[in-house]
Design a protein around this nucleic acid. Structure first.
Lengths: 224, 224
DNA sequence: ATAATATCGATATAATATTATCGATAAATA
DNA sequence: TATTTATCGATAATATTATATCGATATTAT
């Protein structure tokens, strides 16, 4: 346990997921600072105060992007932005397909912020005849029947799933079969995938639960 | 430190946020099981296998809802659903206003699942003249100028913020001033609130980062 | 030029969350 | 009826994440 021969070869350091989730926050703030041209340098203290995160936490998070700062000054804003972009792979975009052009699906198609984060939704798919052939926020809608072939031909690695519960598993199977490596699942059910396939399940109910539980607990505390 | 007089009075046990986030998953699965009428009882092992969570974790999570099961059989499905509903306060709905009827805002207005989770969005607000007075998915859209008065009159505690970055802080201030206790923030910026006000920041960039980092790491591993 | 200060970077500690262990128990089976 | 088995419930061990401490250092002020 004295850290000499454990995994020195490939230097795989596990990245804490909470850190991963905070990096975009730092990034957004840094971009704002850069736009305001307030200063060349920024410290963990400043970032932390602005985002309500302890400065030590900020420093540890930035450390994993291999950023380095100067005592008394802090980090160079420009360099730091570059470090985060490199670390998160935001310099080369990944292309994705979206399946299910309902309310949420078209909202995601209309969100142009994804490009900034290295994701480009290049087309959408639906089974509704009235949607096929039309454009939603500039993205063509194709029939689901063409999904597997197009995934294969374009080498698509990420599928975004915004369909109702009843067909989520079927479309997952289609996509995985065709070669997708990761699925961003906005459908309200857990989907099953073979080992090695990555699923990120976006569950609004979970977030709502956290919010409302905190709320009910804060009200309870007030009255004590 | 020998645990005899620490907080014995009010018995405040901290609820782990990860547990809170998993409860809705169990709930959704239990509802499915109930609909299928497969059996009266269900075990942690079954739930865990289905959701890819260790049975021990499931048991610990369910424990905080004060559910109790029988050896060899497991938990009664119906009772368990009730326990989760009670614990999360899903039996009495909370009313909320939504501010910002853009793509995402109207997608949320159209999502009827919230009612099941104790949230009822009763109206929406926007500053766009062309939207005011219309209905979106059955919810009236009012001018932002009426927001403070209506929050006060209806005693609204939760505000859902689906507006662009530039006006997020202003609308937050309006809502907090009018008496809102919690804000579910879908805008792409961090908002500042006075102490005691709860903010749940929904950040798609964060989730996307987790997904794409896992993807890039899995590809790297494949090639080794 | 010297002293004071803010900050980084490394290391240590504490808090939180997950996973393992094991005895008790109710049902199923021999 | 006795034995086996699957599961709960409680407690212990481990892993992960967050926070604190402190020396080193570059800038600023004296």
């Amino acid at each position: 346990m004295n850290g000499s021969n454990e995994k020195t070869k490939t230097k795989i350091k596990a990245i804490p997921e909470p850190t991963l989730r905070r990096l975009p926050l730092y990034y957004q703030y840094l971009k704002k600072i850069q736009a305001e041209k307030n200063s060349q340098y920024i410290s963990c203290t400043q970032i932390g105060n602005e985002l309500n995160i302890l400065p030590i936490q900020v420093r540890k998070d930035l450390e994993i992007t291999e950023a380095s700062g100067k005592p008394k000054l802090g980090y160079g804003v420009k360099g730091l932005i570059g470090n985060i972009e490199d670390f998160l792979g935001w310099n080369n975009t990944t292309e994705a397909y979206l399946v299910g052009v309902g309310h949420l699906g078209s909202a995601l198609l209309g969100y142009h912020g994804f490009k900034e984060y290295g994701l480009n939704i290049i087309a959408a798919f639906d089974s509704d005849e009235s949607k096929i052939g039309t454009e939603t926020h500039g993205k063509m809608v194709f029939p689901v029947s063409k999904l597997p072939e197009m995934i294969r031909r374009m080498g698509i690695k990420i599928g975004i799933l915004t369909v109702p519960a009843y067909c989520a598993q079927h479309l997952t199977d289609l996509m995985v079969e065709a070669g997708v490596h990761a699925i961003w699942n906005f459908s309200p059910v857990k989907i099953m995938v073979p080992p090695g396939i990555i699923v990120q399940h976006e569950n609004l109910a979970s977030s709502l639960v956290v919010l409302s539980k905190k709320l009910s607990m804060s009200i309870k505390t007030d009255r004590q």
